[in-house]
Amino acid sequence: MSVSIDARRIEVRELRKRYGRTVAVDGVSFTVEPGRVTGFVGPNGAGKSTTLRLILGLDRPDAGTTLVGGRAYRDLRQPLREVGSLLDPAAVHPRRRARAHLLWQARSNGLPARRVEEVLDQVGLAAAARKRAGGFSLGMRARLGIAAALLGDPPVLLLDEPVNGLDPEGIAWMRGLLRALAAEGRTVFVSSHLMGELEDAADHIIVIGRGRILADASVADLRERASSGRVALRTTRRPEAIALLAGNGATVATTGGEQLTVEGLPADRVVELLTGAGLPFSEVTSHRASLEEAYMELTRDAVEFGAPSVTVHTAPSEGTEVPR
């Protein structure tokens, strides 16, 4: 494997970290490429924040390396100019005003005070610049955290759950911002415990569960992979239809009334068989997995604190079916 020195690439190799007896990250490797939004998704406790903390040099890994632009974060001299990060939007001093909160960060990396005004404008907090951060709503704190991440106009952005707790308007704003930053050629690495939050923002998804990488694929690939090929239909002659389809290798389940769910046969083959046998049918729908379902599928065994026996395996309800 060639070692790239692209200043915008994040590389994580064989990363391991345990806290006491808990293994937080267990041999994680991935690369985050510039120019796109990469989602970092996993259930709570999966190791997302730990990985981000290790990349930022906050915690020391037990093994493995993390590089940003080919260098360890701790070796960066003006890190805010190279990596913008947001780990915890609540980490503000309640009595300090928003402007001062950004100014000291600018000073710590030799950035001009002008940048403070610019990023406050950029995130729509200019009017709140003189307010104390303690009075900020969750949404305002998220914006303040993003402003801090943008201070050094960095080519790499690392954001831990930036959408968490935002209202719909805030979520839409954040998605737009993430896309815009990636479109400028920046590396945008965003974690979330909800795949849905990233559904319209991310181009690429890295799924982590119990400290291991479960998937590292484009959004399109991930969707493809999780589509189970289930076909739902309605027929007035259920027993015959079941016998026919099962005889052709499908697994058929009845889901109440005249409804059938067919697994193991593509929709066009189902239609062909039923038509050939002269059986009446209607409302044929091919089930296409949402990103959220793909994620649930991947992390089913990796949910750290999940409720016991989550019934992910049941046939999809009508509400989740997408007609093709």
């Binding site: 701790r74 890190p79 805010l80």
Partner: peptide
């Protein structure tokens, strides 16, 4: 200690890794 209580120490060390 306020920085440890508010979590700001993380922001400080991210900006100044030395």
């Amino acid at each position: 200690a306020d920085e440890y209580e508010t979590g700001l120490i993380v922001t400080t060390l991210v900006g100044s890794p030395r």
